[in-house]
Design a protein around this nucleic acid. Sequence first.
DNA 1: GTGAAAGCGCTAACAT
DNA 2: ATGTTAGCGCTTTCAC
Lengths: 341, 341
Amino acid sequence: MTTDPFHGGEPRPTLAEVARAAGVSEITASRALRGGVHVARATLERVEAAARALNYVPNRLAGTLAGGQSRQVAVVLPSLSNSVFADVLDGLETHLERASHHPILGVSNYDPQHEERLVADLLSWRPAGLVIAPAASTEATRRMLAGAGVPVVEIMDIDPAPIDMSVGLSQRAAGRAMAHYLLGRGYRRVAYVGHDISTDPRATTRKQGLELGLAEAEVALEATVILPGPSSVPLGREAVARLLAEVPPGGLAVCFSNDDMAVGAMFHALGAGLAVPADLALAGFNGLAIGQALPLPLTSVASHRAEIGNLAARALLSRLEGDHVARVQDVGFRLIPGATT
Amino acid sequence: MTTDPFHGGEPRPTLAEVARAAGVSEITASRALRGGVHVARATLERVEAAARALNYVPNRLAGTLAGGQSRQVAVVLPSLSNSVFADVLDGLETHLERASHHPILGVSNYDPQHEERLVADLLSWRPAGLVIAPAASTEATRRMLAGAGVPVVEIMDIDPAPIDMSVGLSQRAAGRAMAHYLLGRGYRRVAYVGHDISTDPRATTRKQGLELGLAEAEVALEATVILPGPSSVPLGREAVARLLAEVPPGGLAVCFSNDDMAVGAMFHALGAGLAVPADLALAGFNGLAIGQALPLPLTSVASHRAEIGNLAARALLSRLEGDHVARVQDVGFRLIPGATT
DNA sequence: GTGAAAGCGCTAACAT
DNA sequence: ATGTTAGCGCTTTCAC
């Protein structure tokens, strides 16, 4: 009969107990433990010793409620299975942590209603700020964000007007750049293959940019295959097989919604004995490591994901310091001409 | 001269204002907004209307401090660039959210000191519980976890004795199973290729299991190549190139620290014209989608990552409900015999 | 440099 | 079914 590990044991010591142990008032203990300005050297050391002895862990709920800035930052992402957002989160977390801030996470799964609930929930923790890679946000969500009373950073796409600040790249320009690149390489037959982008605003914008760029040379997409479900390597593999059942290869360039999908297509080509790029040219998006490690490096667009995370965190923290921060920060993109086109 | 979006505007309405607007006392408003047990139907509706009209968002810091259970769960992961942990986090978040709980995230980068700071920081938010995929944790970290006063779930490996609960698989058994499989396929020449596992306790344990299993047939690793840095596709590609500079191919089976590394090796083989598995047999770990989408499906060990996240969340939540929960939950693993061995 | 008083916004406990 | 009182653990005044 063992004690429940989390029910047994002493209750956590409070600041009052630390203060008593150190023979000072609560407020002096408080000051000592937060940098110790306006505290005598000797007092500071006594308080620190007492805290250590008691294994004191401050209660930040109380601290924040009493007037401090929260050191939590709400982060709302549409997905984690897409490594792009894992990278962004990684960059965010790293940078926040350096300032002793921590992300509270919500994943919307590209569902606007879900996102709305999430934002409301996370805001109830009174975070110091909020970072969001929006799904197709509802009006209510936008209102909450606008009235949040804390800095809000929208990330990934800088095309829409920001509610407060935005950090990312022009998804439209990225799509257009890919069109120009393919046209420049002489391709006139272009198809699009994607996951279900109806709920993914950035993939949608990229596709529009692509079609825009093609239209400037009076080229239209020859075919479009869109499969339901989140993007993945297997999905790309399946989708390109479907495409090739519709249109013949040979000087055909296929743009994918992202690199995962394109890598799947590459695997299909290897398995089906199709020559890349002669029979089938492939272009992805994001510039993931895996695409670059293929025997034929994948043509793609590098999207500086970690930098977006870093910059978003920095923008947020700077604003909290009272500094002026640009409303829109464009991290740009870089077209990676690979061997698959 | 615009107003700072997060400084301007009214201060957020409090429960007291909602109560006043609805013409009831604070506590009645509180009860109404939390399910409305012991509240008259009419009262409930008035309070709800007032809250909506005022755009009321409850302050959970205050709520939790006053006596509620926190609905935050601390999550400490060693990495996010490894998709395994992104999957676990995804599973965790999904399940926590269904119970209106949210993860506060910390990433340790496999650094024990960093992990220690992280645990202390996260605990100061008085989370309802903590989930951790441990790095090589320090004694101090273990003490903090043991004395946290809330449920703690250690995930991924169930071999070490849990501080409180653990959910995962036996990494040692998984390594051993791979050894037996390769021996069963007739391989007698086996090499190991990994990222720097000195800080990755689970990869280390898997390698031990592998060597253990091989030793049972009196086979020893013929070579070991370990490259610094986190595991990745490009790193695997480079590492296997180094290996082949040391030992000749031909009936050689190579075990990788995980699938990313193995996929890199596959790409190397494709580029170098090596026949897989005749010249070079490849085995990974985790059973990632990408390995299974290769033209030759990768031999690997499926590790049920999302399930680990789900189960960890469920274990935590059940414990919070007061239910009895098994200290150790083994989700097992499944050897995937691919075409690369 | 230190302390006393007041209160952050909410909920448990005990009324009624 | 509703209200009153008392605090959660801390920090912000304002005093000395």
